[in-house]
Design a protein around this nucleic acid. Sequence first.
DNA 1: TCCTCTCGTTTACGCCTGTAATCGACTACG
DNA 2: CGTAGTCGATTACAGGCGTAAACGAGAGGA
Lengths: 126, 126
Amino acid sequence: MADEPTERITEAELAVMEVLWDRAPRTATEVAEALGEARGWGLATVKTLLARLVAKAALAAEAEGRRFLYRPLVARDRYLGHESRRLIDRLFGGRAAPLFAHLAETEALSEQDLAEIEALLKRLRA
Amino acid sequence: MADEPTERITEAELAVMEVLWDRAPRTATEVAEALGEARGWGLATVKTLLARLVAKAALAAEAEGRRFLYRPLVARDRYLGHESRRLIDRLFGGRAAPLFAHLAETEALSEQDLAEIEALLKRLRA
DNA sequence: TCCTCTCGTTTACGCCTGTAATCGACTACG
DNA sequence: CGTAGTCGATTACAGGCGTAAACGAGAGGA
């Protein structure tokens, strides 16, 4: 997947991306069905969001007969990285350790989190 | 500082908050001076943002003679926690470990970060 | 006292976002 | 062959956001 600096994906658009990250390609109707329950959006709304995402080059729309099959152009991983970095840059001076420290201080880390992070660290050190 | 569920602070507003977190109270003019360099905003713009933040109860405005002294009502720490949690909830299923794993995998952690986190972990375990 | 400067408040305005309704083209059933 | 349904595209519209100018009241110097 290309790495053009994709425009920012909004909250509502993210919900659409999640559906397609979960499984792709899908048609507009399928995406709407998947979202209808969670968000209660009408088909029209979903189509608008799909169109905007295509315009932002976050999705590709491949014609299949008279309709489109949508698939992500931005990998979820890439997006996660992007957003995490944004947060760290904006609020923690660009360094990850302060974020971690903050989470630790505010008890936002579960025992499980700690264990996993510890294991990860060990692996990184190997 | 109260913990009323403050409305979301926007990007531009955050810049104003940072100035006041750094030192408070300050007048509108002082805030504008502090921001003028970094963001190139006019006094009018800063005043608008201050007013909006007061409306959101993120700032207190205490009259001093004919003008106001602004001071944060939301602690920076509280805000950081809020935003971190938001990101973790939205993108990492509400758990911190996957965020950390993601940062680790994408090489977003410097040697220094790793060392600090390691030290923090050790302290938490003590 | 009068004018100018300075405050905070009000109003402005264009773009983005969330949430659609409408439209024109096409398809597929009757 | 006509008509109802479906598709994507176009248009809509209110509220939020970034950025600011205009306004009215008070303060302070001339």
